[in-house]
Simulated assay, not measured.
Amino acid sequence: MRTLEPGAGPLWRRLQDDVRRRIADGEFEAGFPGEHGLAAEYGVSRHTVREALRDLRGEGLVSAARGRAPRVAEDGALVQPLGALYSLFRSVEGSGRRQTSLVRSLQVVTDPDVAARLGRGPRLRLLHLARVRLADDVPLAVDDVWLPAAETRPLLGVDFSHTALYDELRLRCGVTISGGSEEIRAALADAPTREALGLPDPAAVVEVERLGLADGRPFEVRRTVVRSDRFVLGAEFSAREGSRLAAR
C-alpha cells in the first residue's frame, strides 16, 4: 500500500499532489489505474479518489471517457477544459515538461479599464505581472495579470520564473481564486506577440480573458494569448445533461 506524506491539507489534496508527482515522473506511461485501483493502492475511499481526480482532469493531466478508466493526457497541445479553473503552470509541469516564465513586468500600476472590471474606482492601484510562458524553453503564451495591489504587495518580491501565481497568492497573501468567468476567442497575433512567441506573419492565436473571483468578489483580471497550435478546448455533452466539462 502506498503511503501519503503527512500534511495539514485534506486527504484528497495530498492524494492529488502525489498522483500529480507520479504523472510528472512518468510512472503511468503503461496505463493509468481506475478509481478502484487507486483506492486500493492508497487505502482510501473512492470518494476521495474522485475528489483528487476532478482537479487533475480540470488541469488536463488525466482524462476519462464515460465508462472507461482514466488515462494520462497525451503529449502535444494543452487542453483547456470548459468550466474549469485552469492552471497553465500545473498543466505543463504535469505533462512532464518544465514550465518557466520570462517576467517582463512586475510592478504597481493604474488602469481604469481593469479597475472597472474589478468593480473598483479608476485610481485603484494594481499589481501587474506580465510574462512570456514557456514549455521546455519553447514559447507557449503571453500572459498579463492584474490584481489589487493593496492585498497582493507580498508578490512583488516573488521570482515568477518558475512558480504558479495562484500558489504564491494563496501562500503569501491568503487569497484563493476559487472561480470566475472566461471569454475565449480566435485572433491574429499582433507584431509584439509574434515576436514574443516566435510566430510567423500572419499567425493565429487564442485569446483567453479571465475574471477571477476570490470569496465571491472580482479579484483578478487576466489576458492570456496562446499559440493556436498548442491549445485545445475540451468538453463532453449528452442529450440529457447538455455540455459539461471534461479534459481529454
Rank of each mutant, 00 (worst) to 15 (best):
A39W: 03
A116G: 12
F32D: 00
V208C: 08
H47F: 15
L233M: 12
A191T: 12
G76V: 06
A164C: 11
Y166E: 14
D190V: 03
E41P: 03
D215Q: 14
P192W: 02
V44I: 06
R117G: 08
V132N: 00
R240V: 13
H47A: 15
H162V: 08
E27P: 06
S101M: 14
S87M: 04
G67D: 07
A130Y: 06
D190W: 09
G96L: 07
P81S: 06
L88I: 11
R54E: 15
P70Y: 02
E74H: 11
D229G: 03
L169M: 06
P10C: 03
I23L: 09
A235Y: 10
R185M: 09
L53P: 06
L199I: 08
G212L: 05
A24Q: 13
D17L: 14
E93L: 05
R210W: 07
Q99P: 13
L11A: 07
E151V: 08
F160Y: 00
E5K: 14
A77R: 11
S63F: 15
E207F: 05
A39T: 02
V175T: 06
H36F: 15
S161V: 11
W146E: 00
L156H: 02
V19Y: 01
V208R: 10
R68D: 14
A39Q: 01
T224D: 09
A246N: 10
L155A: 00
D111V: 08
R185S: 13
E41D: 10
E182N: 09
A204Q: 12
A77M: 11
V44Y: 00
T3Q: 15
G96A: 07
A52E: 02
E35M: 12
A187H: 06
V142H: 00
V225K: 01
P148N: 02
G234I: 05
D143P: 04
Y86L: 12
V206I: 10
R13P: 10
E168A: 07
L4Y: 03
E236Q: 15
E195S: 12
V221L: 09
W146H: 04
P10D: 09
S101W: 11
T100G: 08
L147S: 01
L56Y: 02
L129F: 01
G212V: 04
G37K: 04
V158G: 01
R153N: 03
V132Q: 04
D215Y: 08
A73Q: 08
L78Q: 07
R98A: 11
Q99T: 13
D143R: 00
L53C: 01
L126T: 01
D144C: 07
A204N: 12
L61Y: 01
V114G: 04
G174F: 09
P6D: 08
Q80S: 14
R172Y: 05
R244N: 04
A135D: 07
L165H: 02
G242I: 05
V175K: 03
V114P: 07
Q80M: 15
H47Q: 15
R97M: 09
G76D: 06
F89A: 02
R125G: 10
R120W: 12
F237I: 09
R66A: 15
V225W: 03
L78F: 13
T224V: 13
R20Q: 12
R57K: 14
E168R: 07
E195R: 14
W12S: 15
R125H: 13
